[in-house]
Nucleic acid binder design. Structure first.
Length: 435
RNA sequence: GGAGGCGUCGCCUAGUCAGGUCUAUGGCGCCCGCCUGCUAAGCGGGUUUGGGGCUACAACCCCAUCGAGGGUUCAAAUCCCUCCGCCUCCGCCA
């Protein structure tokens, strides 16, 4: 959620952001009003509570004096009367405090509910509008040219004995698959290359839980707009994560971090699960859109004032990975309306897929600024000793989908696939050949 | 799955049985100051986090915070209930 102080100080900025996202601008005034109500209710309650506490302490004092007098066998009647009087007064106040507390609680809940609905304030420069309003930031390489009719990744994968969709469907249903033989090896090689690069740049590699509790899923921001994308295990009230971002965002939840040595960077390796609800009929062929895949994900905790620079760094490391697999790609600046609530800006790297004649997303890096961390209560200690909310960012280093781009772009007329140079040491093969 | 023990403001710890006349005790660490050729020791003070008020984002005042959430009570670290985590033992299973 966004910072209430920003909302109070600069509501126009938040209104503009909501407008760019195509979200409800009126929410801003709604929440400001709720904030006013919450604060006045809180003041009333706290005042009454303070009074009640004072009176109640008098009861305590009176009771103590009474006890002492009894021990000494003195006259207790007067003390007893005083104690009872104080108790009656406190009792009367107690009723009022309970009512005021309930009212303050309600006002607080209404306020927070509204605040949570406001999306992160977009970074200056993010294009307005919906899914199709992205801007192209950079194009790297020309679409791969072939002097033969290229095969699609599934055809190639089947000939190589690398992908088995049919048996995947038999075992798990549609959108499930087996990676077999060189296919399994290729995925492991790719993911390992991602981990190796991350470690080289100082990331801590992490193998993360893929089942998380509701508060983590909620805090990471995955139960709002796209809740129906998430698998939920009813019997245990746990959620299957669609990315290790969720677990890595939860990793430092409730903690106060020491960022004096720079950002904390983690590289998460995990299986990812997505229901793909509402995408019936889309990308039904092959492993472009599946319910389960593997991913290496960068995750960074940094000071908010460094978030934009960190975002550029994550993008740079994604580019390094794409360069290693030697495929043409472009980078888009996602439009505001296509950002999730937590993201203030998102860059996607999209690789050229020859048989589709278009670019498909291979990586995605988001700057969530303090939005995610505020919900998860992750802070850092400033040089002045104050606590402030950290910024969180994430970005992809490799996923199963990358196999699509690798297979299709590096295929030869005979159905073999040349392994990109950087990947060869991880795979131990230079060329994949049909069985 | 069963039985028991534990969870206190960075770390350790008192308080919980018998609710109150205290503002959660003390030590370690850390920070500031004093003293001091230097260091150590010594002395004094400070040291959870969130929210609200007032403001200069200071000082100060108030509310909450003893694993979490409820409840009882004028009053809860303390009593009751539910949940979570850790430890020990038993059972079951990889």
């Amino acid at each position: 959620m966004i910072d209430i102080k920003l909302l109070r100080d600069d509501p126009d900025l938040v209104r503009a952001s909501q407008r760019a996202r195509g979200d409800d601008e009126g929410l801003v005034d709604e929440v400001l009003a709720a904030d006013e109500r919450r604060r006045s209710a809180l003041q009333e309650f706290e005042g009454a509570r303070a009074e009640q506490k004072t009176v109640s302490k008098d009861v305590g004092k009176a009771m103590g004096a009474l006890g002492a007098a009894r021990k000494q066998g003195g006259d207790t009647a007067e003390l007893e009367t005083a104690a009872n009087q104080a108790r009656d007064r406190a009792g009367a106040l107690s009723e009022r405090v309970k009512a005021l507390e309930a009212a303050a609680g309600e006002a607080g809940a209404a306020y927070e509910q509204g605040l949570r609905r406001i999306g992160n304030v977009i970074v200056d420069g993010v294009p307005s509008g919906g899914e199709d309003n992205f801007t192209v930031r950079e194009v790297d390489g020309d679409p791969t040219a072939f002097d033969f009719e290229p095969l699609d990744h599934l055809e190639l994968g089947e000939r190589l004995g690398a992908i088995d969709m049919e048996r995947g469907a038999k075992v798990g249903g549609s959108r499930f698959y087996f990676l077999t033989g060189v296919g399994a090896q290729l995925e492991l090689a790719l993911l390992n290359m991602g981990i190796a690069q991350a470690v080289h740049h100082g990331f801590t590699p992490m193998i993360t839980p893929t089942l998380v509790k509701a508060d983590v899923m909620q805090g990471a921001g995955f139960l709002d707009a796209h809740a129906d994308e998430v698998y939920r295990l009813e019997a245990d009230d746990l959620y299957l994560t669609g990315t290790s971002e969720v677990a890595l965002a939860g990793y430092h939840a409730g903690e106060i971090l020491d960022l004096s040595g720079g950002p904390k960077r983690y590289a998460g390796w995990s299986a990812c699960y997505r229901r793909e609800a509402g995408s019936y009929g889309k990308d039904t062929r092959g492993i472009v859109r599946v319910h389960q895949f593997h991913k290496v994900e960068m995750f960074s905790y940094c000071e908010p004032q460094h978030a934009e620079a960190e975002h550029e760094r994550l993008l740079m490391w994604e580019r390094d990975m794409l360069a290693k697999i030697e495929v043409p790609y472009r980078i888009i600046d996602t439009a505001a309306g296509d950002l999730g609530n937590p993201a203030a800006r998102k860059f996607d790297c999209e690789a050229w897929v020859p048989t589709q004649g278009r670019y498909r997303e291979l990586t995605s890096t988001s700057n969530c600024t303090t939005y995610q961390a505020r919900r998860l209560n992750t802070r850092y200690r400033t040089a002045e000793g104050r606590t402030e909310t950290v910024a969180t960012l994430n970005g992809t280093l490799a996923t199963t989908r990358w196999l699509v781009a690798i297979l299709e772009n590096h295929q030869q007329a005979d159905g073999s696939v040349v392994v990109p140079h950087a990947l060869q040491p991880f795979l131990g093969l230079e060329v994949l050949r049909p069985a």
